[in-house]
Structures are given as C-alpha cells and as structure tokens.
Design a protein around this nucleic acid. Structure first.
Length: 276
DNA sequence: CGGGACGCCTGTGAGC
DNA sequence: TGCTCACAGGCGTCCC
C-alpha cells in the first residue's frame, strides 16, 4: 500500500477541495475489507469536514446539524483515491466505493480490495477506535524522541524491521520506507530491537523522518497502482537506494545488495553498510 | 504476553 | 501462446 507518504499526499490533494462539500450520494461496489457499516443513503446531506490522517488511515468527518460521525478510509495494498471535479469517467472494474459530493466524485480504486471505508460515529468510538487504538506514535510527533524510541525498542525482542512494519512503536513506514530508513541509518534489518543503542535509535528516527518527508515531497512511490488524488504517479521509487535492488551494487560501497525474508516480507539491505 | 504465520484479493512477470 | 508459480505497497486475527 500506500504507506504513510502516499496517504499523506492523498490527504493533501483532497483536503482543500473536499472541505465544506455536501454529500449527494454514495455507491458501494464489490466488498472491501469490511462492510461500510451504514446505509449509503444515510450519508446523503452530510457535510465533509477537515480530512485527517492517523498512521495510514484517513478520517473524513461528516456532519449535519446534530448528526455527526465520519468515514475511516484505508487504501490497503493497492488502493488510491481520485476526486473528479467535473464529469467523472465511467466506473472501472476496480472502483469499489464512490462518494458523490458538491465538490465532485470521490472514488476509491482498489484492485486487491484490501482497502476499507467504514462509518464510525466518532474517531474515538467503535469501529474506528478499535482499529486505531494499538497504533504507535506518529513519526513527526515532536514528543516522540530518540529516547522514547529507544525505550520502546528495549521492551521488544523482535527484529527492528519487523517492529517498524508492526507499527505499534511508530507508524507510517511500510516495506519500502522501512528498508530505506534502515539503510540510511546503517542498521541491519535483522538487528534485534532490544540491542539497539540510544545513538542508533536516534539515527534511525532521523533517517525515518528524512525518508518519509522526502517521499511526501516527491509525491510518494508508485510501483504499480498508487495514484495521488489528481491521478498522478509518485516518483520516490526512483530514489530508493535498496528497495527492490537485490543483486545491484550498493550506491555507497558497491557491495551487492541482498534480499532476505522477514515476517513474510522482503527486506533489502547492504550487508556491508548496515550493521546488526 | 509477544511474536510469527495466515489469509484476505487480483494482477503481473518469470520460467517452462 | 498458455500454464503455473512466486511475489506484490497492509494488517486484523489466530495460534503457539
């Protein structure tokens, strides 16, 4: 999926255009990860508020008079959102949810259907609460320091790569950005969390933030499916230094990059630059 | 309890 | 050309 940068790029591309728009109708296509949890017709007449992001989820507040709640969106592994402000093209076979509003037609395209759109009465009410409660810190939260990362790592025996993907210490990095951040920090993805020193945690946090902000600037990564809210592709994948580059020489030391499987996911790394 | 494997789905590219 | 297999950006749930 779309990792945090792709979700953030999507949020940035939609927030101003959707704020204040009124929902005219909603259409559901093939089933996504979970049912919508509300009759689509019940969304009619609600006004869209400020789009927010938590981890890789998007929260769209919806209200009318005393009625309020919102839609929690997740792009899964292959989802993208596009807002058609004029006439929307005919629905494609992978367009599985649509919100027609006074600002245009918002469409979720998701070939693999691991994505989700679900109604919640509030962000801190179920089902949204249940999905968000276990999430780790936002990577750019200033209260999330190297000391905090170090403290969290000391309580974990798993590998640092698995912990980054689990998202219960810090959210936002999926497979691409976890690999890239670990490369930049000089940390082997197989390194044990509880063996990481405070300085190495500090390097990792800085690297993670650098990778994520660079990716947002570049519009995210488009390997295949991801598109921003205007239908455009991201370009970070071209500046990835290890992801998908097994066998190619490391850009720093020319040692062939390696691929190993951890937690059923590929990890790419330089065996010389990244230490356990 | 932490940690790892599974499965949800469809598409693509490699190899035969 | 057509088949089969491995693999793909995530993550909730189950089992040990």
């Amino acid at each position: 999926m779309p990792e945090m940068p792709e979700v953030e790029v999507t949020r940035i591309g939609l927030a101003d255009r959707l704020r204040g728009a009124r929902v005219c109708s909603a259409h559901v296509g093939k089933p996504l990860r979970w049912p919508l949890g509300i009759a689509p017709a019940a969304l009619h007449g609600l006004t869209i508020g400020e789009l927010a992001r938590r981890g890789k989820y998007l929260w769209m507040p919806l209200a009318a008079g005393t009625r309020h709640g919102g839609l929690l969106w997740h792009l899964g592994m292959s989802g993208s959102l596009a807002l058609h402000e004029r006439e929307a093209p005919p629905r494609g076979r992978h367009d599985h949810f649509e919100l027609v509003s006074t600002a245009g037609t918002l469409r979720l395209t998701d070939p693999r259907r691991f994505g989700a759109v679900l109604w919640s009465d509030a962000l801190d009410a179920d089902p949204a609460r249940r999905l968000l409660v276990g999430l780790g810190a936002e990577p750019f939260d200033v209260t999330f320091t190297a000391v905090a990362l170090h403290a969290a790592c000391r309580r974990r025996r798993t590998t640092i790569k698995a912990a980054l993907l689990a998202g219960d210490i810090v959210v936002g990095a999926g497979n691409i950005y976890a690999c890239e951040a670990l490369f930049r920090a000089g940390i082997d993805p197989r390194a044990r969390c509880n063996r990481l020193s405070l300085p190495r945690c500090a390097r990792l946090l800085a690297a993670l933030r650098a990778v994520l902000s660079e990716a947002v600037t570049l519009g995210g990564s488009t390997l295949r499916d991801y598109r921003n809210a205007h239908g455009g592709a991201g370009s970070f994948q071209a500046s990835a230094q290890v992801y998908g580059r097994a066998g190619q020489p490391c850009g720093v030391c020319a040692t062939p990059l390696r691929r190993v499987v951890q937690a059923q996911r590929s990890s790419f790394f330089c065996p010389r630059c990244q230490l356990r």
